[in-house]
């Protein structure tokens, strides 16, 4: 009896876990979707202020971070190929590169935010409160959305780190790539969201 029980809870269905991951991605899309609705409504109401406030953001850092995320998306995709081809070492290297790139993204974000905060631009700051309503909303959205995105980066890093360990100890392997694939899907989602965040915040001219 006990053995039966173990058998059916340990039953592993890669298609089910992939479907589950996709469904989870849908909820993430709708989670950010709510914020994009807020963004579009407020930008519609304050087009000029949004335009001017966006000038404060550094396009170069935004561009660099975009490219970093795109490359990291590729390395994760490649790591799946590598594992499918049975190249465990290359898988681990590519995952490590992905994690490093994610870290660089966060460091850039840190300096970017730091510069804003240094200039007294952060939610609730006296300086920001003295600006127009459109400015307040723009920077409120900027910090909230990029902040939430950064949290997703961190979650993704944890996920990929777990996958890295499991690849190393062999529980994720050529015959069982599911977890790596799902980790990859999550990482691409993070990239996907940034693809929209970048033009919406940095490229309003």
């Amino acid at each position: 009896m006990e053995q039966n029980h173990v058998a059916h809870t340990d039953h592993f269905d890669p298609v089910a876990s992939k479907l589950g991951m996709w469904l989870f991605i849908f909820t993430e899309i709708l989670l950010f979707g709510g914020l994009f609705i807020v963004y579009s409504v407020y930008r519609f109401k304050h087009p000029v202020e949004f335009h001017l406030a966006a000038e404060e953001l550094n396009v170069t850092i935004g561009l660099i971070n975009t490219i970093i995320l795109l490359i990291s998306s590729m390395t994760v995709a490649m790591s799946i190929t590598a594992l499918q081809l049975g190249n465990k070492k290359l898988t681990m290297i590519l995952l490590a590169v992905t994690l490093v790139l994610a870290l660089v993204f966060l460091v850039n974000k840190y300096f970017e935010w730091g510069a804003k905060i240094h200039h007294d631009i952060y939610p609730g700051s006296e300086f920001l409160m003295s600006l127009s309503k459109g400015d307040m909303l723009f920077f409120g959205l900027y910090f909230f959305m990029t902040g939430l995105h950064a949290i997703h980066i961190i979650v993704g890093m944890v996920l990929l780190a777990v996958v890295f360990v499991k690849v190393r100890n062999g529980s994720v392997n050529q015959g069982r790539v599911s977890l790596l694939e799902n980790g990859g899907l999550y990482w691409h989602l993070v990239d996907l969201i940034w693809i929209f965040l970048f033009p919406l915040f940095y490229l309003i001219h």
Binding site: P123, G124, L137, G140, L141
Partner: peptide, 10 residues
């Protein structure tokens, strides 16, 4: 105090 829904902050 971001002000997403606070009319005083837009």
């Amino acid at each position: 105090h971001i002000g997403f829904f606070d009319p005083a902050q837009g």
